[in-house]
Nucleic acid binder design. Structure first.
Lengths: 119, 119
DNA sequence: CGGCATCCTGTACGATACTG
DNA sequence: CAGTATCGTACAGGATGCCG
């Protein structure tokens, strides 16, 4: 399995985590799968929710997230095809870990945007 | 000030935070400034601690982190030059927010490497 | 619908040399 | 020592077309 993208040498666990969520849309995908609707999402839904992402990038990101055990992919093997994506337990735990960071971002973005400067 | 690299539209605070720490070495710099020694670090020290980073990249990352209010840059205006970098309060808060993520990374990397599979 | 194959591009990053 | 300037590159990401 993955979670070992970078050859050896991490200074800290954070760098390792960054490898997993380092893609341009990775966290957006996580967000969509957890907050976007609550339930599993199909490829097209995801693409629509995320807005500007292209199919290729979405596909590759999903593939990597599946490899890393973050995202569960359920293929219903129907015609026309139906595939649903959801977070694995590990994915949920990652999402939780990201929430702290999200709060920070929220607070500091809003600060930077609204508050002139706390002196 | 910055913290607004991306034009509008964040889905969640996490994406915003990712803009701040999205660089290849950003979190490593944070880690070095907080865990590397405890005290402020000079440019050369930082470069040595981080290992593979080039001067150009370190300089640009530092500049961005300063712009984002994460890193404090103290220029002593001496000859030869002496400049010390440290985390601002905001930087420390970011570092704390990252620690949760770091724990996740630590746990899951180690899991993936040592444990075969928790079934 | 859910992709993959192909091609193209921007840019983040890297290497090296040089300056105040 | 602390950077800037310049150049080169690798790769992530984007656009398009096609297929099961």
């Amino acid at each position: 399995m993955a979670l070992t993208r970078r050859p050896g040498a991490y200074h800290c666990g954070t760098e390792a985590a960054m490898d997993v969520i380092g893609g341009r849309w990775k966290v957006s995908v996580l967000w969509a799968l957890e907050d976007g609707d609550g339930g599993p999402l199909r490829f097209g839904q995801l693409r629509r929710i995320l807005g500007g992402i292209t199919e290729k990038v979405l596909a590759s990101h999903l593939r990597e997230l599946v490899e890393d055990g973050i995202v569960h992919r359920q293929d219903f093997a129907e015609v026309p095809p139906r595939v649903e994506y959801s977070l694995t337990p590990r994915g949920k735990s990652l999402y939780d870990a990201l929430e702290t960071l999200g709060d920070w971002g929220q607070a500091n973005i809003i600060d930077a945007a609204s508050a002139p400067s706390p002196t």
